[in-house]
Write a protein that binds this DNA or RNA. Structure first.
Lengths: 198, 198
DNA sequence: TTCATTTCTTAACATACATCAATGCAACAC
DNA sequence: GTGTTGCATTGATGTATGTTAAGAAATGAA
């Protein structure tokens, strides 16, 4: 996957002039983290949103039995954050960590306020992101309560076609709320049905 | 349940002065709908958010097999809306209807713009509502991928203690993503375990 | 390379949940 | 009253998914 710089992203999505972008950029820090590094832990307040320029992050929880449950993946061009923790300044119940070596832009509250004041377009875009987030979450809930394991997997492929190749299957299973073994069976059945002898 | 007027609600939550509230109120219409009336159908753009003053609404989908899946309940003091349809002006995939006779306040885009301009407090509160919505959806997803039917039901009771009495069990099952029969068995087991002979 | 570790698959078995069908019960209409 | 309708419960049975365990394949480290 190719790197997506935050500056380019802002230009494309919000159509800001270079001067404004430079002004905003001075407030930002970009950092690299290695695979398996943890950026947020339960008990901490989520102080930053992360914009992924290159690499892959995930947001997940761990239950009493020690099992991981993945709420979101964030490949290039995505934001990841525990929004309610960041907004309400509550301690998070979730983890964020790096699935691959990842370079990301750190975005905090002050930046959002600052950028919102400097640029109404930025503020609007932020509002748009919020609504987009809600759309995703709502569709996901609908899939989780309405669909079989097989349909959930098909929904996943439709949503993140490239991730299928980048993340281990047990993580996809963890995202779907099923076991890796079940996912393996689902895949075998799909493959069987899609096989067409000549 | 007691009626919660939108005016009282605004006063409590946002601390607006009476003059501002009156100004806002002129733009609003309050309506009554009977049980089973449909307020939003798939294919329509969701043009209003509804604030429930008295009664109970629900947001749900119907799958290819004709089964209903409930995404949200809205009793007194709650908002209900397909936010992404309303914001992006896309046709909705969902239904909204009345589970009980309900009186509600209709809130549209123009009102939100207008109120946001007149009152920064209102704008901030609206932003807060968005984040609260995201928190709910995220926690729900975590429950759906991490918990058993029994735990999901317990989560439901903790979240909506009063609804347990007001809505038929098959709707709770539909909200949890399980069948009414399964829910009945979950309840029997819980009752069995909580019984303590003297 | 070699060895260890992780991931994926498969199978046998267990269990949770779904399906189908019947019953009882309360609310309501007539 | 009687019949109807909608809802909850129960049992018998089926199926999807979970669990456990093992081995194969891929990956990574030394």
């Amino acid at each position: 996957m190719e790197k997506i710089s935050f500056a380019t992203y802002l230009q494309e999505k919000i159509d800001l002039d270079e001067k404004t972008i430079k002004k905003l950029y001075q407030k930002l820090t970009s950092e690299k983290h290695l695979k398996n590094e943890v950026l947020l832990k339960p008990g901490e307040v989520c102080s930053h949103a992360f914009f992924v320029e290159k690499g892959l992050l995930r947001l997940f929880s761990i239950d009493e039995k020690g099992k991981e449950h993945i709420l979101q993946f964030a490949p290039e061009g995505w934001f990841i954050v525990d929004r309610s923790s960041m907004y309400f300044k509550e301690t998070s119940q979730y983890y964020i960590d790096a699935i691959e070596d990842t370079s990301m832009v750190y975005i905090n509250d002050q930046f959002l306020d600052f950028a919102g004041q400097k640029s109404p377009e930025f503020r609007k875009y932020n509002e748009r992101l919020l609504h987009n987030h809600i759309r995703h979450l709502q569709n996901r809930i609908n899939s989780l309560i309405a669909a079989s394991a097989r349909e959930k997997y098909q929904d996943f492929i439709a949503l993140y076609p490239d991730l299928t190749l980048r993340v281990p299957q047990w993580m996809i299973a963890s995202f779907l709320g099923i076991t890796p073994e079940s996912l393996s069976r689902v895949r075998r059945n799909l493959a069987k049905e899609n096989f067409r002898p000549r």
